[in-house]
Simulated assay, not measured.
Amino acid sequence: MPYSRPTLAELVNRVRSGVISRLAQDEVLRRADAEVYARVMAGVTHGLYGFIDWLSRQVIYDTAEGEILERWASIWGVTRKPAAAATGTVTLTGLTGAVVPAGSPLQALDGVQYLTVAEVTFTTTSAVVSVAASVPAAASNRATGQTLTLVNPVPGVQPAGVASALVGGSDEETDDALRTRLIDRIQTPPHGGSSADYRAWALEVPGVTRAWCYPLELGPGTVTVRFMRDDDSGSAIPDAGEVAAVQTYINNLRPVTAQVTVVAPVAAPLNFTIAVSPNTAAVKAAVTAELADLIRREAEPGGTLLLSHIRAAISAAAGENNYVMTVPSADVASPVGTITTLGTITWV
């Protein structure tokens, strides 16, 4: 039978009853010593119950959190993925001979700052400067064409520059994600290059949220690995640099005889046509969120997204009373190498 933790009010009543019974009193005034004792002792006891309740969740790794979860994970050689800084280039305009020192800060319109990686000297009226985010985070990713401005004036250089795509930034791995990888490691221990090993290796790279392994896809002795970066601010499909990072990481771990190819899945946007009731912005947002969550959980390269699961996701949306979906009208199968992503929802 599960233990039921007493509430603060129940503890107050218990202590009050005990004090009154020992003082041989039938009732106590609100500010009498007995009432004060009861509330103070109950408050302390309630805090101890809370600590013990928290501690009981730390002794098992599937409910542990924070530093204790990291300690559990370290026993199996699983470490929390650190935050990563976005990198890319910025094109600046200036006078020939002008010098941009290494470590010069540039700032985006939302306040996120980047630092120049190396000193650059203008040989023409423009120069391409490599930059990296000063604070590692997913928020440091940028789409092509955004403006970065030099925080400190540099002689002979215009303050505003145009950035290329700044990519590779990711937040520190959450407890939930670390816990999932730890349980996967326990339930599927390494086997010297099994499919589960390649998936686990890809997931160890910062920013990678999903990964799949396809043995023999390119012939005998070959292994193909595909992965996604769902928490990136832009596209979840990895770019060439992110693919290269995973390739390099796996190359250092794979069996020497395996020919491993890491590639990005090809996005196959899935469009929907839905009439929902009630037809409100809140319900539409809830349906969109449920569909996005379903696709993230169940879509995989070369896999099939079941129509029944799509319908169940819409029905699970908060506030939804009824709906009619005309597109899609059947299970959605993805060709080899492509993955279903959320497309456009047409509301009718």
Rank of each mutant, 00 (worst) to 15 (best):
V287Y: 00
M228W: 00
E300V: 10
A127V: 04
D232V: 08
I68N: 08
P269A: 03
N279Y: 05
V348M: 13
V100I: 14
D184E: 15
L109W: 11
Q25F: 04
A202L: 03
S104L: 12
E70T: 14
L253E: 02
M41R: 09
Q58N: 03
A127E: 02
S334Y: 07
T261E: 06
N141S: 02
L203A: 07
D230K: 07
Y49M: 00
E242H: 00
P101Q: 08
G47V: 07
G161R: 02
A285Q: 15
T344D: 15
I274T: 05
D197F: 07
V276S: 08
V157H: 03
E320P: 03
E67D: 15
E67G: 03
P301H: 02
E27S: 13
D293S: 13
P6L: 01
V205F: 02
G66N: 04
V90P: 03
I68Q: 01
G43S: 12
L69I: 11
R226A: 12
G50H: 04
D26Y: 09
T89C: 10
A64P: 01
Y114M: 05
M1W: 01
S195N: 10
A127Y: 06
A299R: 00
A236T: 10
D53N: 08
V336L: 15
L29R: 13
V15Q: 05
F51E: 08
T116I: 04
P206D: 10
T188I: 07
Q25P: 01
L305A: 07
T149R: 15
R229L: 05
Y214D: 11
H191L: 13
A282N: 15
H46C: 08
Q146R: 14
I345V: 15
I75H: 06
S56W: 03
L11V: 04
D331V: 11
G169S: 07
L307P: 02
D293T: 12
L8W: 04
F122Y: 03
N152G: 09
G192S: 11
V120Y: 01
R31C: 06
A133Y: 00
D53V: 01
S17R: 09
A275L: 14
G192K: 09
L29T: 14
S134E: 11
G103N: 13
P238V: 00
S194N: 07
R229E: 09
G18E: 14
P155A: 12
N251A: 13
A85D: 05
Y3M: 00
V59Q: 06
Y61I: 04
S17G: 14
T280M: 13
A313F: 07
W72H: 15
R311L: 13
Q107Y: 03
A85M: 05
Q107T: 11
T87Q: 14
A137R: 10
L29Q: 12
E204L: 07
V348I: 11
E119D: 11
D184L: 13
V260D: 01
L150M: 15
G168K: 05
T341M: 02
S308E: 07
